[in-house]
Design a protein around this nucleic acid. Structure first.
Length: 263
DNA sequence: AAATTTTTCAACCGCTGTCGT
DNA sequence: AACGACAGCGGTTGAAAAATT
């Protein structure tokens, strides 16, 4: 007997999502909320596997996603968190509201890794490469010895030892946050827990609170988004834009509908 | 301008953890 | 305890875009 495949391979579409499929998925989730992902494609009328739907939603269609490259602050936060947590992208993403694990993973592999190598730092261990001969901890727990890395807008990159991290050139709240994360033992411990709250409120919480759906505790209530359902055409002009906040507009833009808002 | 190489990132695959029976 | 079902995670792939020759 054996486990059923997550989807019957026959007739299941793969590859890039079309705008039409996106609309169907968004429509469905806005209507029904997130239920069993396995059932979503059938109920939403999609020829996709549930896994694919979940991925598309969490990585691209979710209304609270930020777009564009990570900011300098976000990059530094990722580096610090990676030094603490290793390749636990979902844990890292949980600390960066509006960013997905996939996005951070991609950014790490395409940008940050190269920067670190360029400045002579091993992106796996966060140690200076010429010190690698020394026996060391595994990457995920190397934070006590990791270099503090500062990447600036002009690609000027510098590394400093843990001892001089107070000499950060940008003494912002964010840099304080970074220090806090890597110096606070209890906070670090909490990072290893499964259900830690985000350090910064996720954008979900900025949505006017409704009664939370029982099985969607991490999501906003869609009750307040029922206005979307009346707009089968999904044109932003069809809505009463005044109450479209950034998050909703973000989703509209994602679906290629936001440009209708420009007069 | 065309061909080739490199980079980016959305999406897939396979594995693991958790929960219910 | 064993098993199946499912969600989620992290590594990898490959098509498209951008850069270079």
């Amino acid at each position: 007997m054996g486990r059923q495949p997550c989807c019957d391979k026959l007739g299941v579409k793969k590859g890039p999502w079309t705008a039409e499929e996106d609309k169907k998925l968004v429509n469905f989730i806005l209507t029904k909320g997130q239920c069993c992902w396995r059932a979503v494609p059938r109920l939403a009328g999609l020829r996709r596997c549930g896994k694919s739907c979940r991925l598309r939603w969490t990585n691209y269609l979710r209304p609270d996603l930020k777009r564009g490259l990570l900011s300098e602050t976000e990059e530094q936060l990722v580096i610090e968190l990676h030094a603490c947590l290793g390749n636990r992208w979902s844990k890292i993403a949980a600390r960066l509201p509006g960013r997905t694990d996939n996005e951070i993973k991609n950014h790490w592999n395409t940008h940050i890794k190269k920067k670190l190598i360029k400045m002579g730092i091993d992106p796996v261990t966060h140690q200076l490469l010429n010190k690698e001969a020394k026996p060391q901890q595994t990457s995920s727990h190397a934070h006590h010895h990791s270099a503090h890395i500062h990447i600036t807008d002009d690609q000027g990159i510098g590394a400093s030892s843990s001892e001089d991290n107070n000499s950060s050139t940008t003494p912002t709240e964010d840099s304080n946050l970074l220090d806090t994360i890597c110096n606070d033992e209890s906070l670090l411990n909490s990072l290893w827990m499964d259900d830690e709250p985000p350090l910064v409120d996720a954008s979900w919480t900025s949505i006017p609170a409704g009664e939370s759906n029982s099985n969607m505790s991490s999501l906003p209530s869609w009750d307040n988004c029922s206005w979307l359902l009346d707009c089968q055409d999904f044109g932003v002009n069809d809505f009463g834009f005044d109450y479209l906040n950034d998050i909703e507009l973000n989703t509209m833009n994602t679906l290629g509908m936001g440009d209708k808002t420009v007069a």
